[in-house]
Structures are given as C-alpha cells and as structure tokens.
Design a protein around this nucleic acid. Structure first.
Length: 465
RNA sequence: UCCCGAGUAGCUCAGUCGGUAGAGCAGCUGACUGUUAAUCAGCGGGUCGGGGGUUCGAGUCCCUCCUCGGGAGCCA
C-alpha cells in the first residue's frame, strides 16, 4: 500500500528505502531519455529540495500524458523509494503510476521558467513566485521565524495581545494613516460648518488603520506584566525604498518594571534566539541563501549569536561619527538625528555587527519616551543592523504623568485620556520596542528588498493580487 | 516627494557614428543521453514603454508622459 508523504519526509530518511510512497506536487522540470525513461523533479514546498521520480515508458499514459508534461504541471507520483542510480540525490522514486492533476495551459508563456528570474519580474507574478527556489525558501524561513517569536515569548511568560487593527486615534505619533470609512465619497455628509461629518461614519467618528499597537499594548502590560503584539501595521507614507511597505508586520514586546537596559537585553536575547532557531531548523534554506543570495549571511547570523551587541550612547555615536574623518553628506552634530549613512557607518564599519544606540535628544524622539535625569535626552534605543539599518526601535516609556503631560499638547492629552489614566492608576516603569518583521527576514536571508520578504507587498500605487 | 538609472522576443540582455532587429534561455521539431537549470541541430517568435518633434531615414537625437528599479527623506 502506498502512503502519501511530503517530499521532505520522503527525502529525509523518514521513509525506508524499498517502501511504497506517493508524493504530490508541482513539476520543477522534466527530462526525457530515449533509454525509455523520463525524469520528473517534483516539488511540494515542504523543504528546499525537490524529489526526482524516474518514470518508465511502460506506463499506460506515458505517450499520451507523460511526454506532454512541462514545468508547473501538478502531479501525483506513486512508486517505490529506491537508492538513486544518478548523481545529485541519495534516493528517488521509481514510479509505478503518475497521475496528472493539473496541466499548464501554454508551456511557452508559463511565467515561471526553469531559469533565473529577476526579483523585479517575480513581483509582477506574485501569485506564482512561491514556486521559485528563493521565494519558497523565504516563505519557510518567514514561517519558522514567526513560530520562533511566539514560542520565545510564550516560554518566557509573555501574553500575546491582539491589539486593534482599526484605531480611532490619529495621533499615535508614527507616520501617515490610512482612513477607514463607510461614508459615500460621492455624497459626503457635512456639518453646519461644511466639514465632513464623521459622526455619521461607521464608528461614530474618524477611524484609521493602526500604525502601531504600542499604546494599547501598554495597558495590557500594566496588568499582565509581560506582553507582546505580533501583527500587521499600516503606514500611508509615500516612501518608495527597499526597506518600506505600506502594510508590514511588527513585533512589539512591552515589559513592566523594566528600564532601557532591560529593554536592550530583551532585544538582544530575542534576536539571538531567533537566529539560532533559523540556523537549526532551516539549514537547507540557509545553505541556499548563503550560496546564491549573499555569501555572508551565515557569518552575519553567527556574529550575532556568538557575541554581545555593542552599546553606545547617542552622544558617543555623534563623537565617533564626528571624529572618524568620513566625508558624510549630512551634518553630524549633537541634537541632529542620525542619517542612514551614519547608521550604516556605525553598524557596518565601526562595529561590524548590530549596535544599540541609546539615549537620544528628546526633541527628535516621540512624546511617550521617558525623559532622562539630564532633562535633555530620552531613554530611547535603536538597534542598527549592517545592511538593514534600523531593525528595532524602542524606549523606556514615560511613566510620570506630569512629565508625560509636558510632552503632549492639549489635543493629544484629550485624545489619549486613557493612556494618561495608565499613569494615574498604579503606574510603573516599563519599556518595549518594535521589531520590523520583514526587515528581520531580510537580515536573516540576505535578501535586499522587503517586497520580497512578504507574500503580497503593498507599496504606493500597488495593491494588486 | 526629491535625485539618479532603466524600459528592445515569454524571460535575461546586446544593439557602435542615425541606415530598416540580434544573442542566450524558454517553446516547438529532430538527434542523443541514468538525466540533474542535460547536450547538439533546426524552426517559430518584435507596436524597440506611450505620444509628439528633428531628419531623406530614429531602437539610437530632442521634448513630454507612463512604468519599474536604486538612493534620499520618513521610519520598522
């Protein structure tokens, strides 16, 4: 009796040689031999490798179907798992039956040819690109990373908080928001003053897609002690770079009774844990990235897992940049934000691995970040990664109501009354950060564009698929 | 949004000084072969991103628009 197996379980020794197996998947390639056999390479996404099936010409549908197969066809192959007579694989299937489940209409125009494609082209074929080596590998690593994030936090007593996707606040402090509305745009209700009357909108007021779950997750932090969010986030910024998406995923842990150093410790420990898991669990995919995408990825991940992150104050970073003699395009001075070129110099040239920059001037950071005793800086940190830039941004939060109030305007204080309440009822020091999931994935795989790290990228002008 | 670069066959690209379109891969046909992105021979395949201009003549020069990529800003 022939049992159904994934390609992975058939290849990885979980099936004994000599057993009958059935695998189901899609053809990567087909080679015919006039010796009276054809070679099918069948892929099902379960692992990096495809399995080879040797099909004898004696099968009933060999002439009528097997010879017509082409890349992309869906097949069910049954046969005996045998040691391979050829080079390139240890085992293969000696097929006794091949059922063609789905044909490729027109082999000439099948968008995923048996060759290298540009990532740019593959983005235009986002529905078929998971059939490629690279996107398939990214997909498995992404899934492993997501699972590792949940298991890391779960095993340490963090609660996963599903903060809302739709928010009524337009002042979360990070970027432009997408409006959520059911109003009839062709016939907008108006107030007496002529403004759009959002009181008639679905939620009884203006509403938007969230740009961060942080403010909401803080309220659960001040009850559950250790919490995190992991979900989609939306920014309506017109930014067109390899590091930005309009819809992306973010991990945001938040810890009570914690300060900025605890926050940096958590960021470092989390990244080390995640990289270790990927190296253990996705050896096959990482070997591919190392060989075909970026020959430095493995060394880069090991540099993170094997050594402590460099930490420096913003003031030190400014001094280093000022004295390094590098001809920067943008000025370096205390009080100015660091430009990409500065962050890159620090992480890539000065340190050579991730660096945590802490305690930035208060005027260039968000209102909720805790004011330090010097009155000039806030307890903020950025983790800067070589080749990626800012991979984590976090801070200790301002837990003192009077200081928080001094950093908010009247509109903000009214809108965020509930956020202020958290400082009135049992406030405690707490800290957290945001980790961009697609940026993390690029760092792990060596891929250069976050549009290739998410299945269906949304960017300005693009929401197809 | 700004600055660069690109757009030519299904895909990746070449195309010189302005003279009427090329290669590799893919596809099809055949040969050969326990093959490995197989190999060899042949065949089919083009609105040169759109529009306008200069010219006897434009893929090539000029203007303009569109699209894509890279960088910057913003950030994760």
């Amino acid at each position: 009796m022939s049992r159904i197996h994934s390609v992975e379980s058939a290849l990885r020794g979980r099936v004994a040689v000599g057993q009958q197996v059935t695998v189901r998947g899609w053809l990567r390639s087909k080679r015919d031999s006039k010796a009276g056999i054809s070679f099918l390479t069948v892929h099902d996404g379960s692992c990096f490798d495809a399995i080879q099936a040797v099909v004898p010409a004696s099968l009933a549908n060999y002439e009528s179907e097997l010879l017509l197969l082409s890349t992309g066809c869906a097949v069910v192959v049954s046969g005996e798992l045998v040691p391979s007579q050829g080079k390139g694989q240890a085992v293969e299937i000696q097929a006794s039956a091949v059922e063609v489940v789905g044909w490729v209409d027109d082999p000439e125009t099948y968008p995923i040819a048996k060759k290298r494609h540009s990532f740019e082209y593959l983005r235009s074929q986002a529905h078929l690109r998971p059939r490629t080596n690279t996107i398939g590998a990214i997909t498995r690593v992404r899934s492993t990373l997501a699972n590792a994030i949940h298991s890391y936090f779960h095993s340490r007593g963090f609660n996963w908080i599903n903060t809302p996707i739709i928010t009524g606040s337009d002042c979360e402090g990070a970027g432009e928001l997408f409006r959520v509305s059911t109003l009839d745009f062709a016939n907008l209700p108006r107030t007496a003053e002529g403004a759009v009357d959002f009181s008639q909108d679905f939620f009884g007021g203006e509403s938007f897609l969230t740009v961060s779950g942080q403010l909401e997750v803080e309220s659960y932090c001040l009850a559950m002690s250790k919490v995190y969010t992991f979900g989609p986030t939306f920014r309506a910024e017109n930014s067109n770079t390899s590091r930005h998406l309009a819809e992306f995923w973010m991990v945001e842990p938040e810890v009570a009774f914690a300060d900025l150093n605890d926050d940096a410790d958590l960021a470092e420990d989390l990244l080390k844990h995640l990289f270790t898991r990927v190296l253990e669990e996705r050896e096959d995919d990482m070997a591919f990235f190392q060989q075909h995408i970026d020959p430095t990825v493995m060394a880069r991940l090991r540099a993170v897992t094997d050594s402590r992150f460099e930490r420096m104050d913003y003031g030190q970073a400014v001094a280093i940049l000022r004295d390094c003699g590098e001809p920067f395009e943008f000025p370096v001075a205390w009080g100015l934000d660091l430009a990409s070129e500065h962050e890159r110099y620090l992480s890539e040239r000065h340190v050579g691995r991730p660096v945590v920059v802490m305690n930035y001037p208060k005027d260039i950071k968000a209102f909720y970040m805790r004011l330090n005793d010097d009155g000039e800086t806030v307890a903020a940190m950025d983790v800067l990664a070589p080749g990626i830039g800012e991979i984590i941004g976090g801070s200790q939060r301002e837990e003192r109501l009077d200081v928080l109030d001094s950093r908010m305007d009247e509109h903000l204080r009214r809108e965020l009354w509930w956020y202020r309440d958290l400082r009135r009822y049992g406030t405690v020091p707490h800290a957290g950060f945001g980790l961009g999931f697609e940026r993390l994935l690029n760092y792990v795989t060596g891929m250069e564009n976050v549009r290739d790290a998410i299945p269906f990228p949304r960017t300005p002008g693009h929401a197809s698929f």
